[in-house]
Design a binder for these strands. Structure first.
Lengths: 100, 100
DNA sequence: TTTTTATGCAACTAAAAAGTTGCATTTTTT
DNA sequence: AAAAAATGCAACTTTTTAGTTGCATAAAAA
C-alpha cells in the first residue's frame, strides 16, 4: 500500500478523491497528462491496495475514496514511531543511570 | 518517500532500524537474501528519502533511523483523513438540513 | 607488512511498472 | 436506429527498478 501511494500520479488521484466525491475514469483522466488507459491502471492499483473503491453505475465506473487502509497505514507509522520513542527512552535512562 | 517504503526489502530494513541502533551495511546484509550491493542501493534510496541517516565510522558505514520524514508522512495521512472526515460532516449536515 | 574486512564504483542483466495504441462492447443520447 | 460517450481487453513499447558481478580502495587486524 505504500507502493500504491509511491507513484506521484496515484498519490495525486488519491489526494483528489479525499474530498469524498466519487469520480468516473474519464473525469479523472481529463486533467491528467496521460491516456485514459493509464489512469485506469493506476486506479486498479489503488483499488487493489484498498485505497479506493469502485462501483459501476450505468456506463461509467465511479471510483471513491476508501478510508480503512489509510487508517492502517497511520497505525503502522504510529507503531514504528512508538518503538523509536521507547528506544530513545531506554537510551536516556541508560545514560542517566549509575551516577556513582 | 512512500515510494521508498513501498519496497518490501526497504520496509524491512527501515523497520529493523526503528529500534534506534545504527547498523553497518554488512550487518544489514547478513540476513538478507541478496547481495551486499543490493542492500547498499536500498539504503541509499532510504537515505535519499530522509528515512535513515548514514555516517562513516572507520571502515564501516553505519545507517540509523531518522524520524523527521516519518513524522511528515504521518502528518500527511492525518491531513488526508481530516479532509475526508470533514467531507463526511458536510454530507451529513446536507442530508439533515431542510426538514421542510 | 601481509591479510582480512567493509565498502565503493561501474557496467551489466533481468524483471516489473508505466504508458500507448487499436479494437470491441455497453449504455446513453439524439 | 444511429451516433456518441465511457469503458474494457490485449498486445506492445519504453522506462525504471532490482539485483548481480568484477574490480579497486581504505581501514583494521594479525
Amino acid at each position: 500500500m505504500f507502493a500504491a501511494l509511491g507513484d506521484p500520479t496515484r498519490l495525486a488521484i488519491f489526494d483528489r478523491l479525499a474530498d469524498g466525491k466519487p469520480r468516473s475514469i474519464s473525469v479523472l483522466s481529463d486533467d491528467a497528462d496521460m491516456t485514459r488507459q493509464a489512469v485506469t491502471k493506476h486506479l486498479r492499483v489503488l483499488e487493489a491496495a484498498g485505497l479506493v473503491q469502485n462501483h459501476r453505475v450505468g456506463r461509467e465506473s465511479q471510483y471513491a475514496f476508501c478510508p480503512e487502509q489509510l487508517a492502517e497505514a497511520r497505525a503502522y507509522l504510529d507503531q514504528v514511531a512508538g518503538r523509536w520513542e521507547s528506544a530513545l527512552m531506554r537510551l536516556k535512562s541508560f545514560v542517566e543511570e549509575d551516577p556513582a
